[in-house]
Computed example of a mutant assay.
Amino acid sequence: MNSPLILINVFTVAPENQQRLVELLTKATDESVKFIEGFISSTLHKSIDGAKVTMYAQWRSREDYENMRKNTGASPYLEEALQFAKFDMGMYEIVKVFNKE
């Protein structure tokens, strides 16, 4: 079995807009993204200083992720987020998982 595609998306935002971005990304995932073919999971994080929001997401494949980006139901959320946040996306593959034994 192939490893999933891992996305680590870091948004930089003014602290007064951090909660707005968290709510927007939550809405995007709950209403659209999680229903798209190939979505596995995502975890949303916010920085203690209020300046960043990070989403760790797993997709079955790069193709599935690319299809999500083309999905008209998902794209308006990212467009809205980019009006008040800077977006830095990274695609990764899992090399090793460490667990407490």
Rank of each mutant, 00 (worst) to 15 (best):
F98Q: 08
A81F: 03
A28T: 00
G38P: 04
K27E: 15
A74F: 15
Y56A: 03
I36D: 07
V97H: 09
N17S: 07
D30L: 13
L82C: 06
E16L: 05
N17L: 03
T43D: 08
S32I: 07
A14C: 02
K34S: 15
E93A: 06
I40W: 01
N67P: 04
E37C: 06
F98L: 14
S75E: 11
A57G: 03
V33Y: 07
T29H: 10
Q58T: 07
N9A: 11
T43P: 00
A51K: 15
A28Q: 07
K52P: 04
V10K: 14
K86L: 05
S41T: 11
F11Y: 15
S47D: 07
N71T: 01
R69T: 14
A74C: 09
E16M: 04
K86P: 00
T72F: 04
I36G: 01
T29V: 15
N67V: 03
A57N: 02
V53A: 00
M55Y: 06
P15F: 04
D30H: 11
N99T: 12
F11M: 05
E63V: 09
E79K: 08
E79M: 08
Y56D: 04
V53Y: 01
F98H: 13
N9F: 03
Q19E: 15
D88I: 03
E31S: 11
S47M: 06
E23F: 04
P4S: 12
F84E: 01
T54W: 05
S3E: 11
T54R: 05
E79A: 10
A74Q: 03
A14Y: 04
V13T: 08
L25W: 06
I36S: 05
F84C: 00
R20M: 09
Y65G: 00
K96A: 11
L24V: 13
Q19G: 04
L24C: 11
E31R: 08
N17W: 00
P4D: 08
Q18I: 03
T12K: 11
A14V: 05
T26I: 06
A81C: 06
D30F: 08
N71M: 02
S42Q: 14
L82K: 05
F11A: 03
S61N: 02
L44K: 05
R60N: 08
K46V: 10
S61R: 02
N17Y: 07
K86C: 00
P4V: 10
M91R: 09
T12E: 15
Q83S: 14
M55T: 12
L78K: 00
T72L: 08
A28L: 01
V95E: 14
K70V: 02
Q83T: 14
D30R: 13
E16Y: 06
Y77G: 00
T72E: 14
T29F: 09
Y77K: 00
N2Q: 13
